[in-house]
Amino acid sequence: MIQVDQINKYIKKNQILNSVSATIHKGDSIGIIGPNGAGKSTFLKILASILKPDRGKIYYQGASYKEKLKELRSNIGYIPQDIALYEDLTVQDQILFWQKASKQKVAKEYVNKVMSALDLFGVQDKKVKALSGGWKRKVNVSIGLLHNPELILLDEPTAGVDLAAKEDLIQWLKLLQQGGKTLVMVSHDWDILNRICEKIMIFQKGKLIFFDAFSKLEEFELNNFGNETDKDLGKLLKLRMR
């Protein structure tokens, strides 16, 4: 579905991504993990076509991103880490606005399905600014999924979310995964990664140092971090054992 070939990204002379290559197949569910500043979110934004790589190429269904940009964007559901919502609209108006703003036809039934799955009907008349962080996060996720995209890119979807809301999200993402959607998510939350993702990408200082099945992660850890050469990443991987 997406092929990333030796991409590099610099922001203000700092190298954020260093020769990253990967292939994402249709139906994959991939978790991206790494210490802060490792380049995870930048990589996700490049996949979402928000940022362009400075070097290297990226392909969508065999053609370059530039050639397939319109098709790509209509098939992407990007959920940013920050709450990118109009705070002064009610949840219902918010969803209606994004539904109407979408280039694709958004089926009302599907919108209802998303709202129901994320339990948003109870707060539909409340303004977004009046909601708690967890509810805002759920509305944020729902907006990215309204047009029923094929490729779903999530940046820290469970940050600041309470357990009940997180459970709603996980259940909905599982359903999407089972429905054949491709999921790529950046997260520090091993719980959601364990339950949703089949593959893991590990970023360290802009390099993709591991991209394989979840089951291969233990072997990788033993080979590379037994001596604790990278403290931050070591700590992060140890959290998985809890």
Partner: peptide
């Protein structure tokens, strides 16, 4: 707030 970026993705342009 990241809304403009989101609109760009949502609308294609």
């Amino acid at each position: 707030q990241g809304i403009i970026e989101r609109l760009r993705l949502h609308q294609g342009s």
